[in-house]
């Protein structure tokens, strides 16, 4: 799980153009939206693209997004649960 979390941090930084953020700045359990990284709604759409591009996962129910994208750890758990790590 830790390796997947570290990989995800790099992919999030690249996908969202977080030029001033380093992987170490992203805490696995910190909220991605609001506080924490302070991502916005367009970033949420980019994270959906990230999951499809790198892991071939399509989110079927948009309502699940809030839970999946709560933190890097919840994203990693979702990827694991889909057997795509």
């Amino acid at each position: 799980m830790d390796a997947l979390i570290e990989k995800l941090k790099g992919q999030i930084i690249e996908q969202l153009n977080l030029v001033e953020v380093k992987p170490a700045d992203i805490k696995p359990d910190a909220p991605l939206f609001g506080e924490g990284l302070g991502l916005d709604s367009i970033d949420a759409l980019e994270l959906i693209v990230l999951l499809e591009k790198h892991y071939g996962i399509k989110i079927q129910n948009p309502a699940d997004g809030k839970k999946i994208f709560e933190s890097v750890r919840t994203m990693a758990e979702f990827i694991k649960s889909n057997g795509k790590d």
Binding site: I42, D43, L45, E46, V49, E52, K53
Partner: peptide
Amino acid sequence: YLPSPATFV
């Protein structure tokens, strides 16, 4: 087909 929402805006 993976268009970027961040580019689209």
